[in-house]
Amino acid sequence: MATVAGTMPLAQAREEQIRRFDTHQIIQHAGLMVTFILLVLSGMPLKFSEAGVSQWWAAVWGGIDNLRLLHRVAAWGIVVVCLYHLVYIWYTTAVLKRPFPYKMIPSLQDFIKFFQEMAYFLGLRREEPEWDRFNWREKFDYWAIFWGMPVIGISGFIMMFPVQATNFLPGWVLPTALVAHSDEAMLALTWIFVVHIFFNHFSPRVFPFNKSIFTGKVPRERYRREHALEYAAMTGEGKESDETDTGNIR
């Protein structure tokens, strides 16, 4: 209890890990991460084309044609990752009969705990709020992609096939797709680089970076602190979960 995983010998620390993500989830995150970074690297110069650094970067890749090709290949890649995720959800629930991962669904509790966490950060509250399987940031990340992928994907495919798209859609979809695509990209980009990166790299508990999504495991002590309700339900010690079903641990 008093020792943090990081201060223990490595072998001992390994024993203390609790499984949080399965292999499919690890692959989905890695695929999303790689394609997202490629899309940012190949997409930003297109948005900020007048900046000198964009022109330099485009020249590094041998001109815009190669950048565009990279952007399109990565775009198909991210679509595949998202379809993989949807198939995974369908397969685990419909075929393997695992419980539906409803703990990802936001609730009023998240809203309240968000303000509790803010109060804790600012020193107005002594205790951190206790999270179940997902904290509000994890849910926000997930649903931001869930809303963002259709927006950015549909607008992207309109721009990838403008002639075919306007065969059955009105002309205004073209300039609108550009606005939606690039602004949604900025939204995702700034959130990932400001909030997601900050908490998964610079939070004292995980510095220099949170390995859980790559190893699938979380040290026991950190699990107990960061997902107290789920941990309690899992181990049967201490607090009751504020949500009824606790069967979604894998």
């Binding site: 803010m118 600012l122 020193g123 700034t190 959130w191």
Partner: peptide, 21 residues
């Protein structure tokens, strides 16, 4: 509107977290 508000929330959260950490 969306971008401004989401980024504002993100910035506030990160700044508060920096204060705490």
């Amino acid at each position: 509107i969306l971008l401004t508000s989401v980024i504002a929330v993100g910035a506030v959260v990160v700044i508060a977290a920096i204060v705490k950490f």
